[in-house]
Amino acid sequence: MNDSSKTIPVLLTLLTYGAVGLIIVLPVLLILHEALRQGLHAAFETLKDPEARSAIRLTAIVTALVTVINTAGGIAAAWTLTKYDFRGSRLLVSLIELPISVSPVIAGLVWLLLFGRQGWWGTWLAQHGIHVAFAVPGIVLATLFVTFPYVTRTLMPYMEQQGRAAEEAAFLLGAGFWKTLIHVTLPDAGWALLSGILLTTARAMGEFGAVAVISGHIPGVTETMPLHIETLYNGYQSVAAFAMAALLVLFAMTTVLIRMFLERSFRKQHL
């Protein structure tokens, strides 16, 4: 009995290491290995290419815009859904969570149906010199859709736990709506907000399918980092493709670590 009670945990732990190593660690190592195949210097040089730089710039702009808009909307939604009771709130939650279950390709397609050449408003807007599809606004819209629920989803559970007493007290003491939100609610939910923002940023930087459908793939103009990785990879520029991939992976790993740290410090605070 004692024998088996020791061997099973050891065996399962080894299997776990093996599974994580094979499924998750190996691909990450491969990305770093391929990026550094010709040395660190060569990898950095590929990132200085004009098209690579334009892709990085576009991704930074899109990510910043998307993060700001979805954070503002996400705070409003989480506040509305947790601080008031109203009819239809469950429907609203389902609507907000809907984009998670929509294929990225569909997330790009829906905007084409509105703004594409055969879309409802595409031709009219194009006649007035406004280009949404195959241009930066379309990329922003597609990325907004894909990253839509994350801030609300991370904020809601903690705003729910907070209850409403602090806000009601602030209000009774004469604080207005904005003062209550900014000085009472958000500082307390700060870590959840930060975690949601980080998740939004990470997903926005890396979105591929939705952006691929609507961007038109014009190198140097509408190519974000993930799209440029595809172009490089299909053009057999392996080092350049993996160098840019490594950049995104390093960012993803940092996000994951910061979120884990945030969650742990929050748990300690509340136990």
């Binding site: 691909p27 990785i229 991939a245 992976v249």
Partner: peptide, 16 residues
Amino acid sequence: MIDLPFAIPTAVTGIA
């Protein structure tokens, strides 16, 4: 690490 497949961009996963 378990969160990485969710955090790594899909195109990066694809080429890897």
